[in-house]
């Protein structure tokens, strides 16, 4: 959305509506083949092939959760040993200061906790959520993206974007409708 200020009217992109997931997959693949890069698909449930066609084959969530979990587990284990073994040595039942079998449960729980929370925070941060308003919500049909329709939006920031030619191209994909999305 880095268009120049004097460009009017401001357009977010063109939104094509499809009736089935397969058509959306096909449309996304065609648009990608045509060279469009700034676009996104919208569907009521995940359609993995659309993300593949958009050139997003693998998400970052796995790496984030792995690192988060590793940090949590390390912190948990070191914390227990430091607090009960070094900072305030506690002798309970004659157990050694370094009682690793008894430090395992909390280490595990903190691993799960930090991995999960970093995954959730990571998801929202990467997706830019919460974002209660979005240009797409200006299009009445788009309410059906959570119901039974599948949408492809070619964004105005795409280098190839042109209201007329892009629209003509979208029409060749035989959508149910094509709408201009106001910014």
């Amino acid at each position: 959305m880095t268009s120049t200020l004097d460009e009017t009217p401001k357009v977010y992109g063109l939104l094509a509506e499809f009736g089935t997931a397969d058509e959306l997959v096909h449309a996304t693949q065609s648009a990608a083949a045509k060279g469009f890069s700034r676009m996104d698909g919208y569907s009521p449930y995940p359609v993995g092939e659309v993300a593949d066609a958009l050139g997003f084959p693998r998400s970052e969530i796995g790496a984030i959760m792995f690192i988060g979990g590793l940090c949590g587990a390390t912190f948990g284990f070191v914390m227990q040993y430091y607090l009960n073994g070094i900072d305030y040595p506690l002798n309970v039942g004659g157990k050694p200061m370094f009682s690793w079998p008894q430090f395992a449960p909390i280490t595990w729980e903190l691993l799960v906790l930090t991995a999960s929370l970093s995954g959730v925070i990571g998801l929202f941060a990467l997706c830019g959520l919460p974002q209660p308003n979005h240009p797409l919500f200006n299009v009445p049909q788009f309410a059906r993206a959570t119901r039974d329709r599948f949408f492809l939006c070619v964004e105005a920031t795409d280098p190839q974007f042109d209201l007329t030619t892009t629209r003509d191209f979208l029409d060749t994909l035989k959508p149910l409708s094509v709408a201009e999305v106001p910014e």
Partner: peptide, 12 residues
């Protein structure tokens, strides 16, 4: 195996 070890080790 771990549960068995930990419980027996802790019970001593």
């Amino acid at each position: 195996s771990f549960s068995q070890y930990m419980l027996i080790w802790a019970g001593n």
